[in-house]
Computed example of a mutant assay.
Amino acid sequence: MSAVVSAARPVERDAVRIRARRRERVIRWSFFAAFLVVTIAIMLPVIIIVLTAFKPVSEVNAYPPTLLPTTWTLDNFATIFSDLPFLRLIGNSVVFAGGVTVFALAFDSLAAYALARLDFRGNRVLLVVIIASLMIPFQATLIPIYQLVSDLGWVNTFLGLIVPRAADAFGIFFLRQFFVSLPRDLDNAARIDGASEWRIFRSIVLPNAVPALLTLAIFTFVNNWNDLLWPLVFTTDSEMGTITSGLTLLTGPGGIIPQGVMMAGSLIAVLPLAVMFLLVQRRFIESVASTGLK
């Protein structure tokens, strides 16, 4: 009897393992299916933009609409470069978004370092004022800023586009919170060795804040690259416009929009952001993994 029982136990254990493996396989495939559905839902607008950019006008305006084009064409891309100074608009967007990003990282990090690592009178009050400024609607300050830029003669210039955005309250607060999380022992050890505040900021704080700096850089660049209102207000010359403001020039009489051409321009506008993210992604992951180990 005992021999029969002992022989049945391995069979039961094998059956339990098989059921566990099946359950694990079902869970894994369920997660994969959910991930696939969510990914398709998120990517659907991008897929529509890509496919519409290669459709002829007859298919873009056809009803009922179709997802896949029956005839692939590059006419929309040719039109976007013939009707608009598109290379110029791309260059303006790079200078505008890149310039704002560089200056914002420089000024925001300096202000955040002072608020996070230096003890001075009014530190807390200044931080509260910066946080409170985030609650002021952007539109409320647009007209006074435009009047100031106009008085300086900076309308239709890169100075007028970049300088008013050279610092950002959100960036200061974001970096300040990250700087606070860094151990102060690093600063104290450097001061004992005779390092100045600038040396501490440049050689200790910034190298350990690369993940936060990259995050803020991506956020700032994308936000300014996609901004429409700011370039529309501060540029009246089509040669000084950006991609987003330039695409508005495609609107025809009666508000008719050439959807295929618009999608082609939008696709070209998205490509630099995708390339930038791919280039920064690996460095960002490495920075997160090595934070605090330098």
Rank of each mutant, 00 (worst) to 15 (best):
Leu74Asn: 02
Leu74Asp: 02
Leu74Phe: 15
Asp75Asn: 09
Asn76Gly: 01
Asn76Trp: 03
Phe77Thr: 01
Phe77Lys: 01
Phe77Ala: 04
Ala78Thr: 05
Ala78Asp: 05
Thr79Ala: 14
Thr79Phe: 11
Thr79Arg: 10
Thr79Asn: 13
Ile80Pro: 00
Ile80Thr: 00
Ile80His: 00
Ile80Cys: 02
Phe81Tyr: 11
Phe81Ser: 05
Phe81Asn: 06
Ser82Ala: 15
Ser82Trp: 03
Ser82His: 08
Asp83Phe: 01
Asp83Thr: 03
Asp83Gln: 09
Asp83Tyr: 04
Pro85Cys: 00
Pro85Lys: 00
Pro85His: 03
Pro85Gly: 02
Phe86Leu: 08
Phe86Glu: 03
Leu87Gly: 15
Arg88Cys: 11
Arg88Thr: 11
Leu89His: 12
Leu89Val: 13
Leu89Phe: 13
Ile90His: 12
Ile90Pro: 12
Ile90Met: 15
Ile90Tyr: 14
Ile90Leu: 14
Gly91Trp: 10
Gly91Met: 04
Asn92Thr: 03
Asn92His: 06
Ser93Ile: 10
Ser93Gln: 07
Val94Trp: 15
Val94Glu: 11
Val94Arg: 12
Val95Arg: 13
Val95Ser: 12
Val95Tyr: 11
Val95Glu: 10
Phe96Ile: 09
Phe96Leu: 11
Ala97Asp: 07
Gly98Leu: 10
Gly99His: 05
Gly99Asp: 09
Val100Phe: 12
Val100Thr: 13
Thr101Gly: 10
Thr101Arg: 14
Val102Asp: 04
Val102His: 12
Phe103Gln: 11
Ala104Cys: 12
Ala104Thr: 15
Leu105His: 14
Leu105Ile: 04
Leu105Thr: 07
Leu105Arg: 07
Ala106Lys: 10
Phe107Glu: 03
Phe107His: 04
Phe107Cys: 08
Asp108Gln: 11
Asp108Ile: 00
Asp108Met: 04
Asp108Leu: 01
Ser109Gly: 05
Ser109Thr: 03
Ser109Asn: 02
Ser109Val: 07
Ser109Glu: 07
Leu110Tyr: 09
Ala111Ile: 06
Ala112Gly: 13
Ala112Asp: 06
Ala112Tyr: 08
Ala112Trp: 08
Tyr113Ser: 01
Ala114Val: 13
Leu115His: 08
Leu115Asp: 01
Ala116Asp: 10
Ala116Trp: 09
Ala116Ile: 06
Ala116Ser: 15
Arg117Ala: 06
Leu118Lys: 13
Leu118Glu: 05
Asp119Met: 14
Phe120Glu: 00
Phe120Ser: 02
Phe120Lys: 01
Phe120Cys: 04
Phe120Thr: 05
Phe120His: 00
Arg121Met: 03
Arg121Asn: 08
Gly122Val: 14
Gly122Pro: 01
Gly122His: 07
Asn123Asp: 07
Arg124Val: 00
Arg124Pro: 00
Arg124Asp: 06
Arg124Thr: 08
Val125Cys: 13
Val125Leu: 15
Val125Gly: 15
Val125Arg: 09
Leu126Thr: 00
Leu126Asp: 01
Leu126Asn: 08
Leu126Gln: 02
Leu126Pro: 05
Leu127Ile: 06
Leu127Lys: 13
Val128Arg: 14
Val129Leu: 14
Ile130Val: 09
Ile130Ser: 07
Ile131Gln: 08
Ile131Asp: 12
Ala132Cys: 07
Ala132Ile: 12
Ala132Gln: 06
Ala132Lys: 10
Ala132His: 05
Ser133His: 10
Ser133Thr: 03
Leu134Ile: 00
Met135Asn: 09
Met135Asp: 08
Met135Val: 07
Ile136Thr: 14
Ile136Val: 15
Pro137Tyr: 05
Pro137Ser: 10
